[in-house]
Amino acid sequence: MNILVCISSVPDTTAKITFKDDNTTFNKDGVTHIIGPYDDYALARAIELKEELGGTVTVLNVGTAETEPQIRKALAIGADEAIRVDAEPTDSFFVAEQIAAVAKENSYDLIMMGRETTDYNSGVVHGIVGQLLGMPSLSPVMELNIDGNTAKISREIEGGKEKLEATLPLILGCQEPIAEWKIASMRGIMTARKKPLNVRPAVGEGLTSVSSYSLPPEKGDCKMIPAEEAEKLIDLLQNEAKVL
């Protein structure tokens, strides 16, 4: 079982988001980066499957050298080797293109990643990779078991759950509770530096560029209206909030 786990490097979920360069760039100063939380679950399940069935787990990240601490963390958690495509992950298609290029050169039974990243949340990379490779892509996968050449999957669908089976190879967008989140052990941390981390150039180029970012407007103060003066609400919504 050879598994490719695609991880993103995202700002810590509690980070304060600011922009620079005339609001065209996310300001990374002082921001801690982590492995995308959904990717982390994909990685955890991949490592469990490897322990169960043998094989290797390769992690792939599209990013500049700044993301290497997150890649080495994935190696410390238990991945065997890593590939970094040396480029800014400018848009979903570009990232998917890189993943597909790596996948074409190797033979993976599973390509796993989070259902979405927690920075830009496009949630489409796994779908595009599926298209580029001509393979089925399923998301959000919440349970995954492998029986021979078949993946038994449970995923959330609108209003319920779906259980399905699919033949490998597959591309999966994952989320909890697919596996127990894994903490890097001391031994893992100490062996991570000895594991291969190969850097390769990107294929193609980003098709989009950011004109500007902005944060949602700050929440205004909450006005309380006594129940006996409910008619004031209409007045405020019409004349102050101007939404009616």
């Binding site: 601490p69 890097a184 941390i189 991570a192």
Partner: peptide, 16 residues
């Protein structure tokens, strides 16, 4: 980086 990763392991352990 390695020491920071060790620190993360400790805090992850407490958190979980």
């Amino acid at each position: 980086e390695e020491q920071q990763m060790i620190a993360e392991t400790c805090s992850d352990f407490l958190k979980t």
